[in-house]
Design a protein around this nucleic acid. Structure first.
Lengths: 134, 134
DNA sequence: TTCGAACAGGATAATAATTCTCAATATAGT
DNA sequence: ACTATATTGAGAATTATTATCCTGTTCGAA
């Protein structure tokens, strides 16, 4: 069974503190402020373990890195195509979609996720500035 | 501008032939049967270029690899949590969802994608067999 | 308590997927 | 044909993640 070690506790606390959806590496930076000797492998290992135990959510969106979320209820995300930032979207979860999908596939459905792509406010501004500069 | 080299033509043809959603590496194997001297880098480079030009679709789903699709219209996918296989789902695209999302975010929305996770028929059988064997 | 087994951590090596670099080649337009 | 540009193949480099290995910790049973 899963022990609540100091490392796990701090990882969980730091993840809960932020509203962003940090990557393992971003979380590593946060946690290291409190546990300077922690290893990156430990962060990866424990994020994976906690996700498997339903304590946190592993968000497998597009982009190159996995992201994590202390909120475990299903909700949707929007990802910035420029900088990779991920934010929550405040729209209701489409539970009827699962039934609809189940009717048309021979897969046994586990869950679903909706991911929007877009340009975040910061990148919109940056792009506008770059346009103007030319 | 974009030349239609032999390599690009063959990559596009092979991608169009299959109904699966091959990874760059799977496509590399297919293409190599016709162009044995092609490099993996060329496959990656051209898939990226063709996706940028809207000739094909780059599917950034969960899992560790990007996948590609000769169909460019938006449609939804289901991915096997066991083996990573990706199939199309025959359910209508929710265009109203974009408007809904636009109303609740300051991102400028580009697009959206719905991804279901599940267990594909083959893995269901395999898992059932493994269960029985114990 | 103390002994042993299982658990967990940190450091580092290994792997996987993708991207980059660069010299050589091919192509289009003049 | 000539030149500028685009493209290729080979391999190195990078990035993100996972595995390994050894050491220290903790939990229970004796």
């Amino acid at each position: 069974m899963l022990r609540l070690t100091t490392q796990r506790q701090v990882i969980l606390e730091e993840l809960s503190k932020v509203t962003s959806h940090p990557t393992a590496n971003e979380l590593y930076d946060l946690v290291r402020k409190r546990l300077p000797r922690i290893g990156l492998g430990t962060v990866y290992r424990n994020l994976e373990l906690m996700a498997d135990n339903g304590m946190i959510l592993k968000i497998e969106v597009g982009g190159t890195q996995k992201r994590f979320d202390a909120t475990t209820e299903n909700h949707y995300h929007i990802r910035c195509a420029e900088c990779g930032k991920v934010d929550d979207l405040d729209i209701p979860v489409l539970n009827n979609l699962v039934a609809q999908a189940a009717a048309t596939t021979s897969y046994q459905i586990i869950g679903h996720h909706v991911e929007f792509t877009g340009t975040c406010p910061a990148c919109q501004q940056r792009l506008a500035r770059e346009q103007a500069a030319q």
